[in-house]
Amino acid sequence: MNAVLDFIATVGRAVLGACRATGHLTLFALEGLSHLFRPPFYLRAFLRAMLEIGFLSLPVVALTAVFTGMVLALQSSTGLARFSAESGVANLVVLSVTRELGPVMAGLMVAGRVGAAMAAEIGTMRVTDQIDALTTLSTNPMKYLVAPRLLAGLIALPLLVLVADILGVLGGFIISTLKLGYNTGIYLNNTINFLQTEDVVSGLVKAAMFGFLVSLMGCYHGYNSKGGAQGVGAATTSAVVAASVLILAFDYVLTELFFAR
């Protein structure tokens, strides 16, 4: 009997804890966003975050995208060989890259690169009293640290994904024409025919969401970290894990919204 009660209590506590954490996170996100509409605005902080999230992530995202496109072409050519391989490969590459793999791969890469760095930076500021120091110097830390990063995540990731889309399709094109020996003109023609605005736009909307999630997780876990270097380390891990899981979960939700009819 006691064991059962203990079990129920444990589950109950876990559920309550999860609800509380979700509530905290939601309030944090709303407060961060609300600062985007109230001056002062920190343009420098925003530009720095854009540089960090967008520009400096370009190499990783570009490489990932090219290889993803290449693998897609290679895999699908074997799978589709029995059917109409040439148009099938072009179709599959362009569809998967723009709808799914571009945003998801870029999101996961940025989560690992930027989410971790953000959590570490803000976490260090927390445990060394720098966040308190901001407050004493007439600066709202949510406005100065969090809001610019949220906005930068929201804007930078779609831009990255646009690049990733192009490079992913290019990767597929390279393998299809150079290795699989498909006709260049036909492949390009197929690609362009299959390319739908809707696919690209849905991918970019996903990217905006993922970028926001990465920044939110980095800021939230950093901001609430405690207990020295170890606490900052834990915050970094949590930020990356949480962002990655949320990206995949929201990918499903958004796909359902866009394409399930």
């Binding site: 720098q130 407050t135 004493t136």
Partner: peptide, 20 residues
């Protein structure tokens, strides 16, 4: 409170300088 805080300067125990 923000107004009140403007009139207080604080030297933190470990400096808390902004290292960025």
């Amino acid at each position: 409170r923000e107004e009140a805080r403007k009139h207080i300067g604080m030297l933190f125990q470990n400096g808390a300088l902004f290292d960025s």
